[in-house]
């Protein structure tokens, strides 16, 4: 099943996603994104050089978590056009990170593609660690497929 444009309204909220972050979460995500920087796998480097309390989630892995959270909601026909996020604080092992979001805008472009804009917050321990705005193409009906759009018909 996929979320359709007609089924969504401004103000709708997405189900929260909670996840317990472990050192493996951080290291797996960093290496999966080919990010070899030591603050994502070396405790001593992170604590003694960077001055933080532990290794922490890297940027591309956070993008991947946002992608997962968004497409959990849209289903496979949902197609992300863009994501913009700002990192305010780090996510560490031992954190219970929580993704929450609301729909802030619904629009249709000149190609008739319908878009939802999401305001997403990644929080841990009451801290908003990362805020993200995402623009997501939704199918107009269960048979529509935004992935079929190419060239001038895709305006992310």
């Amino acid at each position: 099943m996929s979320t359709t444009f007609e089924s969504v309204s401004v103000g709708d909220t997405l189900s929260e996603l909670g996840y317990d972050v472990t050192p493996t979460t951080v290291v797996l995500g960093a290496l999966a994104s080919r990010d070899w920087r030591p603050m994502h796998h070396d405790f001593k480097f992170a604590t003694e050089r960077n001055g933080v309390r532990d290794i922490f989630l890297n940027t591309p892995n956070q993008a991947a978590w946002f992608e997962r959270y968004i497409t959990d909601w849209t289903g496979p026909r949902g197609r992300i056009g863009r994501m913009k996020f700002r990192m305010h604080d780090s996510v560490f092992p031992g954190d219970h990170m929580v993704f929450a979001a609301s729909v802030t805008e619904m629009s249709t472009d000149e190609t008739t593609q319908g878009w939802a804009t999401l305001d997403i917050r990644l929080s841990a321990g009451g801290r908003v660690c990362t805020s993200c705005t995402a623009r997501v193409a939704l199918p107009s009906d269960p048979e529509d497929n935004p992935w079929a759009r190419r060239g001038d018909r895709w305006k992310p």
Binding site: F85, W154, P156
Partner: peptide
């Protein structure tokens, strides 16, 4: 250095 913002725009898969 820190990275504070990241924007990703997706075109052809």
């Amino acid at each position: 250095a820190v990275m504070s913002d990241n924007t990703l725009i997706f075109h052809d898969p």
